[in-house]
Design a protein around this nucleic acid. Structure first.
Lengths: 127, 127
DNA sequence: AAAACATATGAACATCTGTTCATATGTTAG
DNA sequence: CTAACATATGAACAGATGTTCATATGTTTT
């Protein structure tokens, strides 16, 4: 089950074994790629993106975020849990309320690059 | 239906109107935030991440990618369509075969930052 | 024109995901 | 201790998503 997979898909004319053999060793572990996809999955939801954007400004309690986004406290809490598990936000408790904040600056960079990509691609009308 | 939403969620003690009023005008349009989430959704799948990583090395035809990832030609083609719609890859036809390549460098930056985030967060054992 | 091949695509299916609702946990005030 | 409040969480439901299968499109060769 090791290396007859090349031939399974298309004929030998199409696949270029030399490329395959060169590229394959450079691929990261499956586990890393899986984790990476999981991370981006976290960014891939409007509610969570909006939460992150809100936290760009300042730390905030669950209740404030819910009010600001006009959503249920429960919904926000569920999403904050996901963001926290992904280490994108951290929380501190102050009495009854829990304040959430961005955990590091990768969040800003990633979202910033994403925004750049969108602006660039949407804003081109000619070649 | 305008501004009683603050009170709907929790009592006036919790929400801090001055924060809300300060943060709200700084939020991007809903449409942009939606597009941004859509973009990251594209990154949020193992198959697509693997495809992008493969294309880091060189342009490649559908068949080669399928062979390299040990997946169906159909599955890869479907995913390439999504990547192309998101302007993350572009394609050129050469006879019967179609070659795909990364469309710009935001891809590298975003994935790079994502990787950094993962490595950093996984690699911390002490405070 | 027909055969062969690389790629694209529509429909169907199973799986995953986000919200809601009800309720539990944890903290402070009385 | 009890009431009040902020947050967390489990179950359930609806909608989104990725793969497979069958088939269509497009290109080259004969």
């Amino acid at each position: 089950m090791a290396n007859r997979k090349y031939a399974e898909v298309c004929e030998e004319v199409c696949t270029h074994p030399e490329i395959l053999d060169r590229v394959k060793p450079d691929m990261p572990d499956e586990e890393r790629l899986y984790d990476l996809a999981e991370l981006f999955k976290v960014f891939g939801d409007t509610t969570r993106i909006r939460i992150l954007y809100v936290l760009f400004e300042s730390e905030m309690c669950v209740c404030d975020i819910a009010a600001l986004l006009n959503m249920t406290q429960s919904a926000i809490s569920h999403q904050l849990r996901i963001l926290k598990q992904a280490r994108l936000v951290r929380s501190r408790r102050d009495g009854k309320t829990v304040f959430y904040a961005l955990d590091d600056d990768h969040v800003r960079t990633v979202i910033g690059q994403g925004m750049e990509h969108i602006e660039e691609k949407h804003g081109r009308k000619k070649s």
